[in-house]
Amino acid sequence: MIHEWVREALQNEANALMSTSEQVGEEYVKAVEMLQHCTGKVVVTGIGKSGHIGKKIAASLSSTGTPAFFVHSAEAVHGDSGMIESKDVVILLSNSGETAEVLNVLNIIRKIGSQCIAITKNPESTLGRGSSAVLSYRYEREADHLGLAPTTSALLQLAVGDALVVTLCKVKGFTKESFHLFHPGGSLGNQLSQAGDKAQSEQGK
């Protein structure tokens, strides 16, 4: 029985990913172009599980050559929004698009003049209608038996963020050498170093 429940949860999330991939449209193009032409930083904000996903998106952007950092939505309305400038692009995450803390940040960003990208399930939400680009996703239910825990929705937010990051890498012409510059440590850094040494050795022959 347990293995059936595990398989059901995985299938639920896999179906949601496929459904979301089929609705990619011009809003995604707009978002990538906004990030590509950003002359400031990329700021990511959210709260709860969306906040955890936002931290990962900011980290992925930074490690692939796009300066980015995460600001907790609750902290942003208590002074941390001072880190945001008009030339920045802000990515706001809220599954419902009605999270009070995130909407408070949205109001501040409007006054600052930054462009906004919303990642939400509801493009017609307050967050969606107030953003420059809306990256929405689709799913029937969360993966848990109650249909309440942020599981499928969190996965989709992460996947949308990853899609932005990898597409931006291609648009910017990000290379293995570029990646190694920002990620020289760990096993991945060693792997890239060895590949670079091998390439230089072959060129010297």
Rank of each mutant, 00 (worst) to 15 (best):
I112T: 12
V134L: 02
C169H: 01
K172V: 02
M83D: 13
T20S: 13
S81N: 10
K30P: 00
V71F: 13
Q11N: 13
T39W: 00
M1C: 11
A31S: 05
V90Q: 13
F174M: 00
K30W: 09
Y28V: 00
T152W: 05
L17T: 02
E27K: 08
F174C: 00
G204S: 04
R129L: 14
A14I: 04
A58T: 10
W5T: 14
D197N: 12
G204C: 00
H3M: 15
Q194W: 06
T20A: 07
D144M: 00
A199I: 08
I2M: 12
I57W: 07
K56G: 05
H3K: 15
E98H: 13
C169D: 01
I91N: 07
V32W: 06
K87W: 00
L158G: 06
F182Y: 14
L135V: 04
A68C: 10
I91T: 06
I117S: 03
V90A: 12
S193L: 04
I109R: 09
L106E: 12
T64Q: 01
T126L: 12
G173V: 02
A16P: 04
Y28R: 01
R110T: 11
M18Q: 09
S50E: 05
S201G: 03
T152K: 04
G186C: 01
Y139P: 01
M1Y: 09
I91P: 11
S60T: 11
V105T: 11
I117W: 08
K55W: 03
K111C: 06
A199L: 13
L35K: 08
T126M: 11
K56W: 06
G51P: 15
S201P: 00
H180Q: 14
I91C: 07
K198I: 08
